[in-house]
């Protein structure tokens, strides 16, 4: 194990990520053995549907967790974005493109709200999350008069938006998602904003004493997260078309699970976009596998819950050992 850790190639990619990929492969083989239908292309495509929106949520929350904060309003906010923009589309006749912009904008606003309260008011992130979760659900319900909203089907005039995830059998969404993941990785690792987010997650006071406006950058992390949540909403409806008000909480945990499994530390300062991407694939595969085994969604809730606790515990253990 030690020798493996010192291997330069392993070091470059990161042992953690190699192990994650192994987990992914083992899971895939395991599901394929237990359920023969699992290997079919349509199964893979259906698992992909899950990857898209969850991936964007996970990417977003990675930025927030990198600052040492948390946002578990993302699921309901995503539904809020999809509902408000969808309602504009179906009931107020707003065309497709502006509707999508509305979706992203609503996410952006929630990001600003969360970030402002956390960064400038020092309100604990979990309280802000709880409040904005409720506000997201309430606003969406009020706006849509508690009706579910169905985005257009593929066959209708405005149905082209569904091509965002799939044209024929080509998973276009996968490429878009990976492109965004690369973009996020670039932002996190190559730009000033990412640098400051990671550094302030590690030691806010040292960054402040270096003459950096830490509040602004902390807020920026939440704004990025919110914006990505707005995009996630578009991919959610592209995959499933129908959204119901009052739901969305279960995705919080799954997004956070993808993120912490990938090696992003809850204590802040350490974040890995590639880890998050692999984590998201594992969660999506898990979801599809559980369905393939004939079990229902509830098992997934339990398993993701256990995964998050385990992943965070290993993170805590690792930090304890270092001290």
């Amino acid at each position: 194990m030690e020798a493996l850790k010192r291997n330069p190639l392993v070091k470059k990619i990161g042992l953690n990520r190699i192990l994650l990929v192994c987990v992914l492969i083992v899971m895939y083989i395991g599901f394929a053995i237990t359920s023969p239908t699992f290997l079919s292309y349509s199964r893979i495509l259906s698992a992909m549907n899950y990857v898209y929106f969850l991936g964007f949520l996970s990417l977003g929350v990675t930025f927030v967790i990198a600052t040492g904060g948390i946002d578990f309003s993302i699921g309901p906010v995503m539904f809020c974005c999809a509902l408000i923009s969808g309602y504009c589309l179906t009931s107020y006749g707003v065309p497709m493109v502006p509707a999508m912009i509305i979706s992203v904008f609503v996410g952006f606003l929630f990001g600003c709200f969360n970030g402002y309260l956390v960064a400038y008011w020092d309100i604990p992130p979990f309280i802000v999350s709880m409040a904005s979760m409720n506000i997201a659900k309430g606003t969406a319900s009020v706006f849509t008069k508690t009706q579910s909203v169905s985005w257009p089907q593929s066959s209708s005039a405005e149905g082209w938006y569904r091509n965002l995830i799939k044209i024929g059998n080509i998973p276009v969404g996968l490429f878009i998602f990976l492109a965004f993941a690369i973009l996020c990785a670039v932002i996190l690792n190559k730009t000033k904003i990412g640098r400051y987010i990671l550094c302030l997650g590690s030691n806010t006071e040292a960054v402040r004493l270096s003459g950096v406006n830490v509040k602004r950058w902390k807020m920026a992390a939440y704004v990025i997260c919110g914006t990505l949540v707005g995009i996630a909403a578009i991919f959610y409806v592209a995959a499933y078309t129908t959204v119901q008000p009052g739901y969305g909480d279960q995705y919080n945990n799954e997004a956070i699970a993808g993120c912490v499994m990938g090696g992003t530390s809850m204590a802040g300062g350490l974040a890995s976009i590639s880890g998050t991407v692999i984590g998201v694939f594992i969660i999506a595969l898990l979801q599809e596998g559980i369905l393939a085994l004939g079990l229902n969604k509830n098992y997934q809730l339990i398993i993701t819950g256990i995964i998050v606790i385990a992943a965070v515990y290993f993170d805590v253990l690792g930090r304890r050992r270092k001290n």
């Binding site: 640098r195 990671l198 550094c199 590690s202 030691n203 040292a206 960054v207 950096v212 300062g269």
Partner: peptide, 15 residues
């Protein structure tokens, strides 16, 4: 208050 320990020398230098 001085350094960000989990980051590299280069990153700390240019903070």
């Amino acid at each position: 208050f001085g350094i960000v320990v989990q980051k590299t020398i280069a990153e700390n230098t240019t903070l």
